[in-house]
Nucleic acid binder design. Sequence first.
DNA 1: GATGAATGAGACTTCATTCAT
DNA 2: CATGAATGAAGTCTCATTCAT
Lengths: 206, 206, 206, 206
Amino acid sequence: MSPRTKEQNDAIRELRMNQIMQAAAEVYLEKGIQLEIREVAVKAELGYGTVYHYYKNKHMLLEDLLWDALNRTEEAVLPALTGDGGSLLKAEAFTRLLLQTCIQELPVFILLKTVSDNFHHFPGNRFSKLFADFQERILLPFIGVIREGIHPQSPEKTANLIFGSLVGCIALNIHHNMRDEVDAEGIVHMIFSGIQPKERGMEWSS
Amino acid sequence: MSPRTKEQNDAIRELRMNQIMQAAAEVYLEKGIQLEIREVAVKAELGYGTVYHYYKNKHMLLEDLLWDALNRTEEAVLPALTGDGGSLLKAEAFTRLLLQTCIQELPVFILLKTVSDNFHHFPGNRFSKLFADFQERILLPFIGVIREGIHPQSPEKTANLIFGSLVGCIALNIHHNMRDEVDAEGIVHMIFSGIQPKERGMEWSS
Amino acid sequence: MSPRTKEQNDAIRELRMNQIMQAAAEVYLEKGIQLEIREVAVKAELGYGTVYHYYKNKHMLLEDLLWDALNRTEEAVLPALTGDGGSLLKAEAFTRLLLQTCIQELPVFILLKTVSDNFHHFPGNRFSKLFADFQERILLPFIGVIREGIHPQSPEKTANLIFGSLVGCIALNIHHNMRDEVDAEGIVHMIFSGIQPKERGMEWSS
Amino acid sequence: MSPRTKEQNDAIRELRMNQIMQAAAEVYLEKGIQLEIREVAVKAELGYGTVYHYYKNKHMLLEDLLWDALNRTEEAVLPALTGDGGSLLKAEAFTRLLLQTCIQELPVFILLKTVSDNFHHFPGNRFSKLFADFQERILLPFIGVIREGIHPQSPEKTANLIFGSLVGCIALNIHHNMRDEVDAEGIVHMIFSGIQPKERGMEWSS
DNA sequence: GATGAATGAGACTTCATTCAT
DNA sequence: CATGAATGAAGTCTCATTCAT
């Protein structure tokens, strides 16, 4: 019936789904959970029936978006965990990579924010599996690094502090449309070194 | 002439509006912008028609909630600005007060989070006035303190870092239902002193 | 209990009910059946609970308004029916009186318009009695006059034509806020004499 | 690419919108401004979601109905304006066409009545443009005809009289469910020739 | 008698989703 | 595969009405 080969169809499928997820991420950034499938379709330059052709419903789409983001996140921070160097350096590298990935890939930012907010505007708890996976694949390794060399007693608390700060700072920047000028290094520096007075006459020494 | 005096009616109005705002804050925390007036009414133990008796619509209610929170926020941080002591101490005190107020008063937390998210799920821009006021009454004074004694060159950036971290950390805690055990002091300490390794051999001394 | 005598109370009652009906007529003119009791109360300068103190519900109020108007209408046109003179003159006088009363008393206009529109926006048929009375007390006498000396075969049709024209013209004028300058005589003249060319130089010859 | 062509979709849209407007006109006749979208949907034999698929809200639907009616009205009376013959004949022809169109096409009647009532139950003044257009396209040409050969001094007043009478008579007839037996010729005759006694002895000759 | 707080039935409207083409 | 017409469940909001004071 179809003049296309299976491979061609799969390629189209792949293409369309990415198109839609990308669009969904952009719309989600603006509207949050209130995003409408119609808007996603418009932004993806597709008919809105088409979105339903690929995703059974809104939540499937968001779920796919987040799982995909989880994979990308894991990939992105891997280097920080496998490299050698002191725990503090590893933790810093991890934080830096997380930040940079957030800025470059909207879905990753959305994932982090959503986890941080404990999925509070998602109905039901269809995301507990996702959260568990996030804990296992992203947070626990990070906690491990912290336990190892920074805060053996309560690494979870420290991880939460870092994670919360990071997400808070990046959200502030992204939502105020300052995405292109986020000072990732400044954020990392603040998190790890704190707020230190820079006196006027000392500028050159910084 | 009047069966209830004007004063009595005003007292009732005041009472009901607070009742409703308190309920709205609780529901908002759970559902975000998707809160339903019906739920607010139930939580406030009022008929839902009553909510509409006081608020023309959902957005008016949220607007009032946020303006009210702004007033409370201003009041709460005032001591930090007027007291004497070095800028660093002032900034710390300011941050600490902001945090504590967030934890104690839900509406204040909601305000801070909403400002941080740049009102991204509110339709239209009916909140630009609120944002402007927030900047003028809360953020600018804080920026002033930072400029004075911490970071004369780019106090705004530093203020954003602190504000973002603070909101991020508190959100993480509150959304994960750890509201009662938020370690405000730990957050302040991290923000101002950074992440410092506590070595194993020191555990006993902590 | 009450320091007022029964007479005083009755006087207040009478006063209030007129106040309310007058207000209702004005609001009805603007909003039609969509009038709100609250608006009536505001226009009558009374609390809206007070309106319900006198009228069990919206429809009772309108019903009272229309019955009252029917009485006034009957009274107003009586002279035209009882006087002597030819049928044509009587019919003209009747029409003129109807018109003049409409202009002076809003409720009468509302009654005529409502009858003309067959109560089409009133729910149910609680007004069939009113309509029957209107027919009997206003329309039939008028039809009688017409049958007598103008149109013995189908006086109803002629009465309808006159009545329709009259209500249509007056409605046009009143709804376009030209109430104070309605040319009653012009309308009567048109109805009875028709449209006749008045050429520029020929005016005297008409 | 498209499963239905754009042309097919446009045809469906056109069809549905007419279906809905027709239904709306019928319901409006019964209920006036209080018409419910649900009733319109039922009468159009469509789901009520479908009505909203085509019209953002009730007022948009009515607005479209009236604009459409304005176009039809203009078309209908055109012959009276362009034909030759004396002004009086033209005016009569115009009036007759207006009447006939009213009877045949409900939306036209609704337009005329609504204009006559100055849109008094429509909220806001979203209809001022429509009214202006009505004046320009329907009323002014008619006034022109009257000025030309009937009433050079105050053609507006005469036009108003005719228009008011016409709308009043037709409304009386239509609202009393006598739509099928409206004596258009009788109305035109009355408007232009007035009320003239037909004496008993003359019956056979009429 | 006078009032406005309180209420919920019922209308309005949105938007996720289905389905025919 | 691709699309937009069609739909109704579920929310929003209005406003007539009741009732305590």
